[in-house]
């Protein structure tokens, strides 16, 4: 990958379900695990409530990446909202192509309430992955 993106600090929206991943993110804090500052976490009840449009709009409004985190399959508080999110992920990737966006800008991961380390790792990987892809073509000046 090109080295010109090394100094680029991507801005990534992380949408976390309240029952598992948001709790896992909190546990990363309680455990003082360190990860890059590039993410802004948005809380939803379930990954199943995230309309594909929300993700596409985030990316076309200038987010460099969107990370969606939900419960592991079988652990969903609402039975199978996470599986719905999974099935929508493919559609989202197709939509990104239409908007000229790289698939690396979107990622869906399962993080349980106890997987603080996994949350930190996923965020770190996502930041690096998006850093390599470079700034979003839709990026606007952020104050």
């Amino acid at each position: 990958m090109s080295t010109e993106n090394q100094d680029f600090e991507p801005l990534i929206i992380a949408i976390c379900c309240y029952w598992c991943s948001y709790t896992g993110a909190d546990l990363a804090g309680t455990s003082r695990l360190q990860y890059p500052t590039n993410i802004r976490i948005l809380r939803v009840q379930c990954t199943g409530m995230i309309h594909p449009n929300l993700i596409v709009e985030a990316l076309t409004s200038g987010a460099d990446g969107v990370l969606v985190c939900g419960c592991h399959p079988g652990d969903c508080h609402y039975l199978e909202g996470n599986l719905r999110a999974k099935s929508r992920a493919d559609a989202i990737e197709l939509m990104l192509e239409d908007f000229g966006l790289e698939p690396e800008r979107f990622r869906l991961e399962w993080v349980s309430a106890s997987e603080a380390q996994r949350f930190a790792t996923v965020v770190t990987e996502m930041v690096e992955q998006v850093r390599k892809v470079g700034p979003s073509p839709y990026r606007v000046a952020v104050e």
Binding site: I13, L54, S61, G62, A141, V142
Partner: peptide
């Protein structure tokens, strides 16, 4: 949710 996303992006 949109407002939150936009705010995160500084909009």
């Amino acid at each position: 949710l949109q407002a939150e996303v936009k705010a995160a992006l500084g909009i």
